[in-house]
Amino acid sequence: MAAGGDHGSPDSYRSPLASRYASPEMCFVFSDRYKFRTWRQLWLWLAEAEQTLGLPITDEQIQEMKSNLENIDFKMAAEEEKRLRHDVMAHVHTFGHCCPKAAGIIHLGATSCYVGDNTDLIILRNALDLLLPKLARVISRLADFAKERASLPTLGFTHFQPAQLTTVGKRCCLWIQDLCMDLQNLKRVRDDLRFRGVKGTTGTQASFLQLFEGDDHKVEQLDKMVTEKAGFKRAFIITGQTYTRKVDIEVLSVLASLGASVHKICTDIRLLANLKEMEEPFEKQQIGSSAMPYKRNPMRSERCCSLARHLMTLVMDPLQTASVQWFERTLDDSANRRICLAEAFLTADTILNTLQNISEGLVVYPKVIERRIRQELPFMATENIIMAMVKAGGSRQDCHEKIRVLSQQAASVVKQEGGDNDLIERIQVDAYFSPIHSQLDHLLDPSSFTGRASQQVQRFLEEEVYPLLKPYESVMKVKAELCL
């Protein structure tokens, strides 16, 4: 049975990233139509530049190519590739079939990587351009969430054990800070992308030097003109047959890092959902379990974690691919890159769409948070109580021993009897502590235990987050809708 299948058929496997999760716009960027249309555009740009620099290419040939950029006979191309065992030459023939007058000058002087690699770089750039505003929107939604809850005390956790208090907004800023680093890295790697350009079979530009009869300047002009037509500021000066596969490492490393950030955020949300302090959106008709109707599973956060793990592992592909590119190139890269580049971007696209949807509907339960604080705060307040007693004339050592005994009794009630923490009640009825009984409410005010959390939130948002989001103001209103 021949390899390949009808990918629109229910009898043929289709990647869930495309069929179930990723956005239509990201799927289109990695589609065959987008790819092969870009090949034709690159052939047109090459012909236009070659004509401008004096090669015998007519206006009629150029116009014929322009008129057929979208006229792609995919069936013919597939048949040609089956016959020739070469995808680029299959599309040269297919393009030439609908451009008979231009057929002889299509791909003039070029090698397969002229269309293959340059198209990949265009796709990487455009895919990054799709991700950047999506990530900015996630940051914006979380920034709104953090600002609104900047002063809401909550129990902090280290080692997932109760620690000092923080605020809900401050905790959210930990998430935002990681995503801001990801946004900066995505922008950097996007701006650092260079075009492969017009380089020939081993990167020496020998074929173009021959076409222009040894004119170095025209060869350099050709490279520059096509690079500018493709919208790049610069091209690699040095290439082998391909652009260095280190570029793929750079791009997928940034995406993998984004995956790590999203995994951490969504894990926190899942843990908070278990504590009943916070939940992701839950639709009115949504079913959490087929057997347990009360369940409210954090399905979206779980999906993000599941896909983020996949995204983090994909960076190993370009690392290994770059390491086995012998001399000017081997074909070890080809099949692998067809999979890992598309999957990385479709996965990143999915987790950003999902995280935006989550961040637009996060639900906080202040009463649950308050109750958990009441359970733990008495123990945390013991040092403040000791200091207040010393100020009232008591002995630190005597007070410490009193607190120690009462704390152990209260802990026994919590752990052995399943009761509430009654340390404060014990202190309130103990005559030894009568000098500070009137101060206990103040000493137990949760806001006095959150330090500068709310001020940190305000400063972080104003100095770091809002300036970073400013270039994306025009796209901030787009909502994230999930079908599944």
Rank of each mutant, 00 (worst) to 15 (best):
A2M: 15
H7C: 09
H7M: 15
S9G: 04
S23M: 04
E25F: 02
E25P: 05
E25Y: 11
M26C: 04
C27S: 15
Q41I: 10
L44A: 09
L46D: 01
A47S: 08
L53T: 10
L53M: 13
L53W: 01
L53Q: 09
G54A: 09
P56N: 10
D59S: 11
I62L: 13
I62S: 03
N68D: 10
L69H: 08
N71K: 12
K75H: 13
A77R: 01
D87I: 03
A90S: 09
I105H: 12
I106R: 02
G116L: 06
D120F: 07
D120V: 07
V138K: 02
I139T: 11
L142W: 11
P153F: 02
T154A: 12
L155M: 04
T158G: 00
T158P: 01
L165W: 00
T167K: 02
K170I: 01
R171E: 05
Q177E: 12
D182M: 04
L183P: 00
K187D: 11
L193C: 10
V198S: 06
Q205W: 00
S207T: 14
Q210G: 11
K218M: 09
V219S: 04
E220T: 11
L222Q: 08
K229D: 01
I238S: 06
T242M: 03
Y243D: 01
T244R: 07
R245A: 01
D248W: 05
I249F: 09
L258M: 13
H263L: 07
I265S: 11
N274I: 02
L275Q: 03
K276G: 07
R300S: 06
S301H: 01
C304D: 04
C305D: 04
S306Y: 04
S306V: 03
L311K: 01
L314Y: 14
L314N: 08
T321I: 10
S323W: 02
R329K: 05
T330A: 13
L331E: 02
D332E: 02
D333G: 06
R338P: 00
I339R: 03
N353I: 11
T354W: 05
K367F: 05
V368H: 06
I369E: 06
E370R: 10
P378H: 03
A381H: 05
E383K: 00
E383P: 02
I385F: 12
I385W: 05
M387G: 15
G394Q: 09
S395P: 02
S395F: 06
H400I: 03
Q409Y: 05
A411D: 05
V414D: 05
K415V: 07
G419A: 09
N421M: 08
L423F: 15
I424A: 15
R426H: 05
S434K: 11
I436W: 04
L461S: 04
K470C: 13
V478E: 14
L484A: 15
